[in-house]
């Protein structure tokens, strides 16, 4: 008997045109087309989407939470990247 697991897929759904696809969860399927069909049944029973992406979970490379410091810390001291860093007179209105 074949005891091999069906592979895992991550599911992304666009809830309506104009919005990006958003991760909603994962599911098992034998292949991508079955993953799409299952995603429809599992994640779209109430008009939740207009478009589905399925991606084999093992194709995703994720960052390590332990690397948070080197990845995100450098951005924190670059406050000059934000508009509030610059002083503009009230008289000129919104800018």
């Amino acid at each position: 008997m074949n005891s091999k697991n069906w592979p895992l897929f991550e599911v992304f759904i666009r809830s309506k045109n104009g919005l990006s696809h958003k991760h909603v969860g994962s599911l098992h399927a034998a292949d991508p087309s079955m993953a799409l069909e299952n995603a429809r049944d599992v994640y779209c029973r109430r008009n939740e989407g207009v478009s589905i992406w399925v991606v084999p979970s093992d194709s995703i490379t994720a960052s390590d939470p332990g690397d948070a410091e080197e990845l995100y810390e450098p951005a924190k001291d670059k406050i000059y990247r934000h508009p509030t860093f610059y002083t503009i007179p009230d008289e000129i209105g919104h800018m």
Binding site: N2, A30, D31
Partner: peptide, 9 residues
């Protein structure tokens, strides 16, 4: 069914 789906894939 699970086995057949995998074999087909």
């Amino acid at each position: 069914v699970r086995e057949a789906a995998l074999a087909f894939a």
